[in-house]
Nucleic acid binder design. Structure first.
Lengths: 182, 182
DNA sequence: TTGCAATAGTTTCGACTCGATACTAATAGT
DNA sequence: ACTATTAGTATCGAGTCGAAACTATTGCAA
């Protein structure tokens, strides 16, 4: 495969994302806001701050702060201040926020209709590319809790040895900003 | 593959595009402007108007008009008015515009470093997905000139039987908004 | 313990996107 | 000769984007 195909691959990824974004713009949420909600749904309770999202999206705290402001105002998320560290803020999805994520969308429909094998190949190669990109970029991987070297399994859920916190079964499947590959 | 994987696939596509966009924002071009330049580089001389780009990107004429205005002002493209149809405008890349497209970028580097087979699988599955999405969306395919049923090959390049125009070899490889699969 | 430095988050700035809407000018069809 | 359609533009309000300046808190070291 040559240079040409590489360019085309890049353009396809961007175009797909763009068409998905266009369908998002229609509603009351823009793509940045939608990306924030999606992240919140996948991140554990230690990883839902403006800083974490900024790092995940490759953005800045200032920008993300604005996005959360809009989301709070529209009732998609609520703010929760930490009493341990009075600087820290965490955001939680409201019922409305959860519904917005599950809303039908163009890209999701397209993916669901793909042939099983091709779909599987797509996911595999996207994961490879994603890893490559993050390495290139010096970004953190933002892996899942139960794949972490600070994770220890318990009968019901698990335990984080870094933060000394018990974890529910659901939580062990979520993104953690402290995650380091086992 | 279940619902979960579909969601994850969608998120990966969006995240990849987002990280690529972030690296674009750094310079003097934003993602929308970059998408416009990329399109111009791939579209033939009959397909470089605001309307065509709007349709390609799933956007509106008003928005695209603004984007071209910014690009002209910054010297990346030039305007060319048609004398046949005095409403029509076409944009051409300047030297600066061509250079901007060839500039190194995060996603391009990531793709170039992938294993050949995985890269090929990625391109194939993205094409399948893209076709599925466009069908779903009722959008035009924006195929390449020489794959068109109005195309007829000539010794040097080709000829468009719809527009009655001769085509250079390079032009036969470009996107045409009139294209209909052969 | 006082005195910074680092961290978390916010605000403001200017350029720009986004869809929607209302507009002008040119062309096509009846 | 009308009228509908098409091509492009201007303007609006909400929001994004990075950058930079800002506040409040926390951590560390002398």
């Amino acid at each position: 495969m040559g240079m040409e195909d590489d360019l085309y691959t890049r353009e396809l990824i961007n175009r797909l994302a763009r068409l998905d974004a266009t369908s998002a713009w229609k509603g009351d949420l823009n793509p940045a806001q939608k990306a924030a909600l999606t992240y919140l749904a996948r991140a554990n309770r230690f990883s839902r701050s403006p800083s974490h999202l900024a790092e995940y999206l490759g953005s800045t705290r200032g920008t993300i702060s604005q996005t959360f402001k809009a989301l709070v105002q529209k009732g998609y998320v609520t703010e929760r201040r930490s009493q341990a560290d009075k600087r820290a803020i965490s955001f939680d999805l409201t019922e409305k926020g959860v519904q917005a994520i599950d809303a039908p969308n163009l890209l999701g429909r397209g993916i669901s209709k793909m042939d099983q094998q091709i779909k599987k190949d797509l996911l595999t190669s996207l994961e490879v590319l994603s890893r490559q990109l993050l390495k290139e970029n010096g970004s953190r991987a933002f892996g899942v809790c139960n794949q972490c070297r600070h994770f220890s399994a318990r009968k019901n859920g698990g335990h984080c040895m870094l933060l000394s916190e018990d974890l529910s079964p659901a939580e062990t499947l979520k993104i953690c900003h402290e995650q380091e590959a086992a």
